[in-house]
Design a protein around this nucleic acid. Structure first.
Lengths: 291, 291
DNA sequence: TCATGGGCATACCGAAAAGGTATCATAATT
DNA sequence: AATTATGATACCTTTTCGGTATGCCCATGA
């Protein structure tokens, strides 16, 4: 049984006689006769009653007409779906991001992408930066949003957001009420900072800003997540530079201060160059729209 | 796009490399390569990533795998359905019957048939005998249950039931209380009877029984339906012979009496010999079981 | 570094299938 | 009885399909 035979069969059932059906199918009558006869032989059943003024369906033919139409409909749908999948309009896309990004770019991006590509099964996962790197390498996720630093040879990236860092102080800190905080006044403070191997750009940005203010920051504690840094600052364990958008975390007891020439932090969208998932292009177009 | 290509595609997706897939498909690798390449060309999309240790699906391929499996599943189902339809296990079957038959054979037959052929869409219609004949001729119904008499050249029939006729009298009739009614005692009564052209066998049976009792019945009223005859007898318009099963009609004021050598009435299943609906055979087998 | 082997693509060939033309058989219609 | 419409059959040509032989690529290992 072939799809062509089913097409011929449906057309013949519609037309009611071989001649007109063949015409509609852009072929001549004899091959059509043979195809239908072949189909009948294969199925072991007469599908049409041949009368002097055309053909009519038998009971088996009526049943097949229902099923054949469904098969043909699905076959056509399959073709359309493949095209859609190639364009990234359907399929699956998974995004991993650090909790820090969750406060800045992720919400808007996710919302916009889901509107633009409603038929893509879009999954998002918060993950620690190191986990994100591994997940990306092993193909668990198609896209990652994180700080610069995991640019391997096979990864591509695109900047999503460049935002200033703010100083965060405990609520009861002596500097928490000054109007314009100078970095220099923090020279004796104990700093909470992300380990350099976790996010070199972030770490170096903070250290360099302090050095340009004339001191090397005293590292009180190395902490992996910006979110946790803010929490620990609120608990009185020191001060820190964190991305400005962390203010949205609404941590009680933490006070945010802007400074002159703040260190800048980048959020990068990264993916593997050999990942061919067409949905990635769609996501990139949404990113381009939004920046 | 052909069903074979979809089969090849699914098998390749399962096997993970051309060699094994070709083996499973009982063919060699090169034709399989060409078929897949052809499918990819037609769809305008790479479906597999060719790696040194086999193939993996692309995003478009993953989508197609879902759809292709569904298409193949339905195609196989269509084949099975055709076979079922040929055997009369699925399809449509419509039965027309006279109201008189509704009291005797129809209930049991319908019940049994629906159990034996649950996937057949079985429709039943009560109809007047003349309408039944026309409906049968024009193919509105596949089967009819009626009295003998509409045996045309193209119709086939099979006896379903042969039952004795009873005399029905008004409740207040002077003979309604005798223990054993003799036909002879009805010689002066006015008879309600079906017109001869509507059911010759029925009509003739009654007349002949009366004549063998020594009189020709006086036709008081010609009535089409046995049901109506009983009702009119109850209303005091005369007496009548009706099929014994009419007693089930529970008409108030009508009294049924059995007689010696009662006229017999046949219920026939009739259908057109050129009607090829395979469900008819199924119905016949149910009838055979029940008689 | 070069040989090796697994894996897919390509070239070419013969067989099978599909479509086209011409013609026939049948039944309804004029 | 001739005609017309319809499907089937015979025969031919083209296309498609599957098979064999072989080439290319890349990873692996001596």
């Amino acid at each position: 049984m072939t799809l062509n035979q089913l097409r011929y069969f449906c057309e013949l059932a519609d037309a009611g006689n071989f001649g007109r059906a063949a015409e509609r199918l852009h072929m001549t009558q004899p091959p059509l006769s043979r195809q239908i006869a072949g189909l009948e032989t294969e199925l072991g059943t007469k599908l049409f009653e041949r009368g002097p003024k055309g053909v009519t369906l038998t009971a088996a033919g009526r049943q097949l007409l229902i099923d054949a139409r469904e098969v043909l409909r699905l076959a056509a749908l399959a073709q359309r779906n493949v095209v859609a999948a190639r364009r990234g309009e359907t399929g699956q896309l998974s995004l991993g991001f650090t909790m820090c990004a969750a406060y800045s770019v992720v919400p808007a991006l996710t919302r916009r992408y889901k509107v633009a590509f409603p038929n893509v099964e879009f999954r998002v996962r918060e993950m620690m930066p190191v986990v994100l790197e591994r997940a990306l390498r092993e193909g668990e996720i198609d896209l990652g949003i994180s700080f610069p630093g995991l640019d391997g040879p096979d990864t591509m990236s695109r900047p999503l957001l460049r935002e200033p860092m703010s100083v965060v102080l405990p609520f009861n800190h002596k500097l928490s009420r000054v109007r314009r905080l100078k970095v220099r006044t923090l020279s004796t403070e104990s700093f909470l900072i992300v380990p350099r191997d976790q996010a070199p750009s972030l770490h170096d940005g903070v250290v360099q800003r302090c050095q340009s203010a004339g001191f090397t920051p005293k590292i009180g504690l190395e902490v992996y997540l910006q979110q946790t840094i803010v929490n620990l600052v609120a608990a009185g364990l020191g001060v820190a530079f964190v991305p400005g958008s962390m203010q949205k975390a609404q941590v009680k007891g933490a006070v945010f201060k802007t400074v002159d020439n703040p260190p800048m932090v980048d959020q990068l969208l990264v993916w593997q160059s050999m990942n061919t998932n067409p949905c990635i292009q769609g996501f990139l177009s949404v990113c381009a729209e939004l920046t």
